[in-house]
């Protein structure tokens, strides 16, 4: 999964989709995950990194990550192939 290329993410966790004009806010851990996704991390790498850094077990975080990426899909912010979607 990738975040659509044209979507800007600020350090303060503000996301803007220039195609739809929608804005979003993301909490700090969400911003961190988005950064990892953009850097090409796969989910198991994200899980490992987060579980090493935060007080959370793999099961819980796995579930929360699925939920989070599910919401990215829900808001049409992600793409699952390399080709650019609108």
């Amino acid at each position: 999964m990738r975040i659509k290329k044209n979507i800007a993410i600020s350090e303060s966790g503000f996301m803007f989709n220039p195609i739809t004009g929608e804005s979003f806010t993301v909490n700090p851990i969400g911003t961190e995950i988005l950064q990892m996704i953009n850097d090409g991390f796969e989910s198991d790498q994200i899980i490992e990194a987060i579980c090493n850094k935060y007080q959370v077990d793999q099961h819980t975080f796995d579930k929360d990550l699925t939920d989070f990426t599910g919401m990215l899909d829900h808001h049409h912010l992600s793409q699952h192939h390399d080709k650019e979607e609108a």
């Binding site: 804005s23 993301v26 909490n27 851990i29 969400g30 090493n52 850094k53 819980t60 939920d67 989070f68």
Partner: peptide
């Protein structure tokens, strides 16, 4: 020491 965890969220600004 590990940091306190909070689950990731995204909220659309309506």
């Amino acid at each position: 020491e590990k940091l306190r965890y909070e689950r990731p969220i995204i909220r659309r600004l309506d």
